[in-house]
Design a protein around this nucleic acid. Sequence first.
DNA 1: CTACGAACTAGACCCGGCTCTAGGTCAAGA
DNA 2: TCTTGACCTAGAGCCGGGTCTAGTTCGTAG
Lengths: 129, 129
Amino acid sequence: MQLSIGQVAERTGLSVHALRFYEKEGILAHQVHRGPGGRRVYTQQDVDWLRMCIMLRMSGMPVPEIRRYTELVRQGDGNELQRLDILKEHQERVRQQMVQLQECMDLITYKVGKYEDYVNSIAAKAVGQ
Amino acid sequence: MQLSIGQVAERTGLSVHALRFYEKEGILAHQVHRGPGGRRVYTQQDVDWLRMCIMLRMSGMPVPEIRRYTELVRQGDGNELQRLDILKEHQERVRQQMVQLQECMDLITYKVGKYEDYVNSIAAKAVGQ
DNA sequence: CTACGAACTAGACCCGGCTCTAGGTCAAGA
DNA sequence: TCTTGACCTAGAGCCGGGTCTAGTTCGTAG
């Protein structure tokens, strides 16, 4: 299956601009090949790869690190340990992020509870009047 | 207890620059009062407030929204419903973020597992030789 | 033909959130 | 007295991550 940049944009949710930007940043496992008129032709694998990159970005992996990982994959077999290192390191960061986020959530939930109680008590008084 | 900007920086983890920046952005519940020589004098309440703001920032609340919330608090009683709205909205965003983060985590964990298996199988072969 | 839509490149621009600089005040200690 | 260090203001600069523009080139449809 051959996909144009527009189609890839649709199915990844990235903008056409962002796709070209990612390519320039070296974030494509197997560089996009070009069709007639120099147009980019993507495959399903490209889309799959992009979806993974989107996950990595969403979870806060910086573009340069995604590039490092991508380069390892491009180089092919033999560097699996390095790839594993990158992934594990990121996994740890994500774990920490989740812990932090949970702490924030706890505080917010506590505050929401307080305000709800307060607002309800006001409403109750109003009814009592 | 009176605190200098430097002391507040220490106990919040924010930089002195960031503290002045936050103040300029209107993110201080009760505006910092000034001591001799125009120096900022913070109280424990300021520190507590800042700690909450840090939680809100960490969980992705944009500065302008923290300002809105701060302004409501500054205005005093009577707008608790609006404050509650802001908090609930943010709570929902944080919830979504956590879901996303968990999805990313699942993918990463899956990949880490794959690579570990692979790396181990290689190691086993090496031993077998 | 021509005109539209989708693609191309290179590079400028934007935004949020700080961070840093320049130039100055002030108080305490050597 | 001089120096040091913490503070002050206003405003410039930086970084990450895109986003947008200008000026073209295609291929297809009217």
